[in-house]
């Protein structure tokens, strides 16, 4: 049997495992919750945000991005990874998984794919909820100018860039949560990440700090030239660093004795 067959069967099992789990709901509900809060903000106080010459769609996106990148994403990724790997910790599943006739690498990769897929899903939900929110504001606040749907492409590219820039954080949290069953550890790291990013925002080397990559990646928004440079330094560092952490994480996990 080929590695691809192993991977496919392992991945299809992982997706079934997500059925009825909080992790799945979280990746759908978290962006919706954020967007709906901001819809309320724009609904009631939109005039303070959308001033002369400002594209309301961009302003609405920025409002969401700032919270999303700094506050929500680090915690959200911590939650998602620890919930997904927690399924195994909770049901004593590792020894079972590793005693199946599957290469260990397949099991690891399938799990990692699942987590990446969940984050991607939530980014898609984010875009959909963003569009729905904007259209809703078009109905309830016609004065804000949401009827001209121009310059949306830059928002979509920014979200894609954001996703790529979170790769290293996902990899790191994935390793933490697969290695230790503690939920508090993942959350603690997430919280520390938020605080350090907020405190060190103006530090000259902040763009090397992995937890700041998502924020740095879309800092130029809505400047099209900056956003369209998809593989900027942060994104490249994130992809490279993430791949490295995934590989090192696997080496660590595959050598561990399963008790």
């Amino acid at each position: 049997m080929s590695a691809l067959t192993y991977y496919r069967s392992s991945l299809s099992a992982e997706t079934l495992k997500l059925k009825n789990t909080f992790a799945l709901w979280l990746s759908i509900l978290a962006p919706c919750a954020l967007l709906s809060m901001n819809v309320l903000v724009f609904w009631s106080k939109g005039q303070h945000f959308v001033t002369e010459g400002v594209n309301p769609w961009h302003k609405f996106a920025m409002q969401n991005f700032s919270i999303y990148t700094i506050l929500l994403l680090p915690l959200f990724i911590a939650l998602l990874t620890s919930l997904t790997n927690g399924i195994e910790h909770k049901s004593n599943g590792w020894k079972h998984l590793y005693s199946l006739p599957l290469p260990k690498a397949t099991i690891y990769t399938a799990k990692a794919t699942t987590v990446l897929g969940l984050v991607l899903l939530s980014n898609v939900v984010f875009v959909v909820a963003y569009l729905a929110g904007g259209l809703f504001l078009l109905l309830v606040r016609p004065d804000l100018g949401f009827e001209s749907m121009e310059g949306l492409a830059v928002v979509f590219v920014a979200v894609l860039k954001l996703f790529l820039a979170t790769f290293v954080i996902i990899a790191l949290q994935f390793w933490l949560s697969i290695r230790w069953s503690s939920f508090a550890l993942s959350m603690g790291v997430g919280i520390v990440a938020i605080i350090t990013v907020m405190v060190a925002m103006r530090w000259e080397y902040i763009h090397y700090y992995p937890f700041a990559y998502p924020f740095m990646a879309i800092k130029g928004f809505p400047n099209e030239a900056e956003v369209y440079n998809l593989f900027s330094q942060e994104v490249l560092l994130s992809l490279g660093g993430g791949a490295l952490v995934f590989i090192l994480g696997y080496l660590d996990i595959s050598r561990r004795r399963i008790s």
């Binding site: 049997m1 067959t5 069967s9 392992s10 299809s12 099992a13 079934l16 495992k17 059925k19 009825n20 789990t21 399924i87 909770k90 049901s91 004593n92 599943g93 020894k95 079972h96 998984l97 005693s99 199946l100 006739p101 599957l102």
Partner: peptide, 27 residues
């Protein structure tokens, strides 16, 4: 086939789904 102490069951899934998941992995 193996069963080590307590079986690994995903409690949020039905018995059938647990089997289905395992079935996919062992083909």
């Amino acid at each position: 086939g193996s069963l080590i102490e307590m079986p690994t069951l995903y409690r949020h899934l039905s018995g059938h789904d647990n089997l289905e998941m395992h079935r996919r992995m062992v083909q």
